[in-house]
Simulated assay, not measured.
Amino acid sequence: MTTLSIDIISDIACPWCAIGYGRLREALDASSEIDAEISWRAFELNPDPDAVREPIGPALAKKYNMSEQQVDETQQQMKDAAHALGINFDNMDSRYTCNTFDAHRLVKWSAQFEKQTPMKLALFDAYFGHAQSVDEKDVLLSCAESAGLDRNEAQSVLESDDYAQAVRDEEKLWQQAGISSVPAFVINQKYLISGAQESDALVKALSDIAIKESV
């Protein structure tokens, strides 16, 4: 058994990040000789905390210079990909843009309890499955609870500046390392897999890396 360290650079507001993790999980389940230690790393698609919330369709059309029909088609492709992985994207069309900085702080905090992945998945489910704004305190606290974390402790984090500098430092680190889009998977701090690649491709990539690392 080869254990790989996998840093997942992602944003809660990125649907391909949720899909990318689902495909990674599928690939790891199919790779009986590989185990993984996963760490979630922060990246913000909408880093402006003062930005006005917008419905996601018009916001994406404006950002990527697409028609709303093209946005709808792309959203449907993502829904289909998520559904195939058992990921809830039922209300992703109804979501609004939002800042995810506080959500990243909670993901950082949850690491000490080995709850990063449950926390991240709860946030994905809230945002894409239920179109909840993951910059609202009550939503964040409910996500923490559903991840098996203490609501009162999570509230204390949100009411402080705890983990704020850690998130900023982490974002800067990965940007300086050349990460400009997400998801990005960094294996053993040496190998980069970019994007939400299909599970079969991930199986091969992880197997190739495991062979190199075992030599």
Rank of each mutant, 00 (worst) to 15 (best):
G148V: 02
W174F: 14
N46G: 01
E37W: 08
E44F: 04
P58F: 06
D93N: 15
Q197I: 12
E153R: 08
E68D: 14
N152L: 10
A147L: 01
A166W: 01
L202I: 06
T117P: 02
E136W: 06
A201I: 15
A61C: 10
E54I: 12
I87C: 03
Q155I: 11
A82D: 09
I179W: 03
E33H: 15
D11S: 04
E68I: 13
Q197N: 09
Q116K: 07
S67W: 02
D208Q: 08
A144H: 07
I34G: 02
Q197P: 15
K62Y: 08
Y127A: 06
K120E: 00
A59K: 11
R95F: 00
Q197K: 12
I34T: 12
G178S: 10
L28K: 03
G20A: 01
T74L: 07
F101L: 14
Y127F: 09
E114S: 13
L4S: 05
L123T: 02
Q176Y: 14
A27Y: 05
A205F: 04
K63N: 09
V167F: 09
L4D: 06
S214E: 11
A154N: 01
S142D: 15
L140C: 00
A111M: 07
S142T: 06
A210L: 10
V215S: 10
G195Q: 03
R105L: 08
T3Q: 08
I34D: 05
I187R: 03
S5G: 12
P15E: 08
D125G: 03
E170M: 09
L173P: 04
I87M: 11
